[in-house]
């Protein structure tokens, strides 16, 4: 009896998630009347706006990942090594972006860094890009920090550090050659999540007026019929590819370690 119910619940859940997806995909394929075609995709992909915003967001995502890794790995490492009593507080801080809406953060940025402030970062495109990257890093902080911290839990950070120190290694060497490689799988899974977040982010990019992929999706959605569905499917595919890569990387690193 219970089995039937749980199967039922599972099927209803799947329908709930999959049906809209199927509908959307079906719609995105029906631009040409009476037959399925990839016309909508062709239009989207050949749109120069699409190419520009997409590559802008990819580059932003890469910078955000690098910045996030440089910020989070040493912090999480140091907290584990030297200030374990601060761990709950640091964890709380990293969770804040989940409860503070992005719009609040970005208004804070604009207030603090507008052209008449002490540090007018919004005055130049580069400054605004940097600001946006900080914003993205904040948004991805909860995922990045948790991933790295979980990765660090699996290694004996204290003893490995001491072993490396007694062999003459400096902090930078220890981080780069011992700590980072040992949490690489965790870092990569954090990185893919960051990538997915940055590719889909709308609020910050729109309010800072940067030509990112999120605002482009919104713009297209407001003005076209079939293309937005195609775009949504593409965005979905990116997110899912990221998730798949997380799985793959986790398996891949274990695999190479087990194989050699």
């Amino acid at each position: 009896m219970i089995r039937i119910w749980s199967w039922g619940a599972l099927i209803i859940g799947m329908i709930y998630f999959i049906l809209p997806l199927v509908g959307m995909t079906e719609f995105s394929l029906s631009m040409r009347r009476g037959e399925y075609s990839f016309d909508a995709y062709a239009v989207v992909l050949s749109d120069s706006q699409f190419q520009a915003t997409f590559s802008y967001s990819v580059i932003m995502a890469l910078f955000t990942i690098v910045f996030g890794v440089l910020l989070v790995v040493p912090t999480a490492y140091w907290v584990r090594l030297r200030m374990p009593e601060l761990r709950p507080y640091v964890e709380f801080i990293t969770l804040l972006p989940l409860v503070i809406p992005a719009i609040v953060v970005v208004f804070g940025y604009i207030r603090l860094y507008n052209t008449s402030s002490w540090l007018p970062m919004t005055g130049t495109a580069l400054g605004t890009n940097i600001l946006l990257m900080f914003g993205y890093a904040t948004l991805s902080l909860p995922y990045m920090y948790r991933a790295v911290d979980t990765g660090l839990r699996a290694v004996d950070v204290g003893t490995l550090t001491e072993a490396a120190q007694s062999l003459g290694a400096s902090w930078v060497t220890i981080l780069a050659r011992i700590i980072l490689p040992n949490v690489l799988a965790a870092v990569l899974s954090g990185a893919f999540l960051t990538f997915a977040i940055v590719m889909g982010e709308f609020t910050m990019a729109a309010l800072l007026d940067r030509p990112a992929f999120g605002p482009y999706m919104q713009l297209l959605g407001a003005n076209r019929a079939y293309e937005p569905s195609a775009l949504a499917v593409i965005a979905f595919a990116i997110t899912w590819a990221c998730m798949g890569l997380i799985q793959l990387v986790t398996r891949f690193t274990k695999h190479t370690r087990a194989q050699t």
Binding site: V155, D156, T159, L160, E162, A163, A164, S166, R177, I178, P181, N182, L184, R257
Partner: peptide, 11 residues
């Protein structure tokens, strides 16, 4: 230094 827990670098 040699530790009880070996402390070899796993990577």
């Amino acid at each position: 230094m040699v530790f009880q827990a070996y402390a070899l670098f796993p990577n």
